[in-house]
């Protein structure tokens, strides 16, 4: 393979990996503080992407022409709205079921995901069909040999890196981050140390959901198209990525996201018939990974008291 093609695939894989990683980090955060899997996470991403799109359409109809303003507004609207939605979900559906079997949380978030997905399909104007997503980032590109390095992709990657670094700093350097880590470590101890448990859970869900909104926006800008099913796909893949990396570990989730993207990209290159079967291949990989490492590469500590 020549350099250009290789670089193209690498860039492609990095973009995919960044989106997967952002979703996976959300799963890991939720699992960290509450030991639950929130299956509606992917669909929150969808709602985030559509919120951004709606914001764009709204601004356009109001006559706003500046792409910077549009982009900023979309970013704020999507992230803000999803943060609120995430906290509401935690408050209304996840926390009330803490005493119930873990299965009930799984089921209720799965059903909630369906509600969100269907709501987008039914209530967003013509939501059942794929919607074009505007190109808002500068589309110039730099040619290196026969590889076109697009500026918009570079910006998105850089923004993704910034978000992840920011999250890391927040978790490791701030009081809030300390509280989140304390709750993740040991709920009871954190409570006795004066941490407001419910508040921290809500904030964590807000943060995770904001990350999903960011990933949703990125997805739209990258493919220039969104549909009501993207979250389901990204949710399953992101969750698998989180598991590969070992649930509960932020680094693991990021690593898992990029690993999954790498596998997928390599698969698409190595198997000539694979382009049509791209998604089939991705889901097959999920299943095989589960069979191979049911609790991830970094096994979750299974210390069941007998």
């Amino acid at each position: 393979m020549d350099f250009g093609l290789f670089a193209q695939h690498t860039m492609n894989g990095l973009m995919l990996g960044m989106m997967y990683a952002l979703v996976a980090v959300g799963f890991t955060l939720f699992f960290g503080v509450l030991d639950v899997i929130k299956f509606s996470h992917g669909d929150v991403l969808t709602v985030g992407a559509f919120t951004a799109l709606a914001t764009f359409v709204g601004l356009k109809s109001m006559g706003v022409a500046s792409t910077t303003v549009e982009l900023l507004a979309m970013l704020i609207a999507a992230i803000g709205a999803m943060a609120v939605l995430g906290a509401v979900i935690a408050k209304a559906f996840v926390l009330p079921l803490r005493a119930a079997p873990a299965l009930n949380t799984l089921l209720i978030t799965l059903m909630l995901g369906t509600v969100l997905r269907e709501a987008v399909r039914l209530f967003y104007p013509d939501g059942a069909n794929p919607k074009p997503f505007p190109r808002l980032l500068p589309a110039e590109s730099v040619s290196i040999g026969n590889f076109n390095l697009r500026l918009d992709n570079t910006i998105m990657l850089a923004a993704g890196v910034l978000v992840i670094v920011g999250l890391q700093l927040m978790l490791n350097r701030t009081k809030l981050g300390l509280a989140i880590r304390a709750v993740a470590q040991d709920e009871e101890t954190a409570k006795t140390m004066g941490v407001n448990f419910s508040a921290i859970v809500l904030i964590t869900f807000a943060i995770g959901s904001a990350l999903a909104a960011f990933a949703g926006l990125m997805n739209g800008l990258y493919y220039n198209e969104i549909n009501f099913g993207i979250g389901l796909y990204l949710g399953v893949v992101g969750f698998s990525a989180a598991i590969i990396g070992g649930l509960g570990s932020i680094y693991g989730a990021i690593l898992g996201g990029f690993m999954f993207a790498a596998l997928q990209t390599i698969g698409a290159v190595a198997l000539p018939f694979a382009s049509a079967y791209k998604d089939v291949f991705a889901f097959a990989v999920v299943i095989v990974l589960m069979a191979w490492r049911p609790t991830g590469l970094i096994p979750e500590k299974l210390s069941e008291r007998v």
Partner: peptide, 30 residues
Amino acid sequence: LLLPVLRTRGHYAAVVTIAFALLFKTFLEV
């Protein structure tokens, strides 16, 4: 799916069958 379903528990097993459901439909389409 037996191997992944037997080796995983709870949430993990759920993902195996969800992935299969998505795989199946995509497979039929292509």
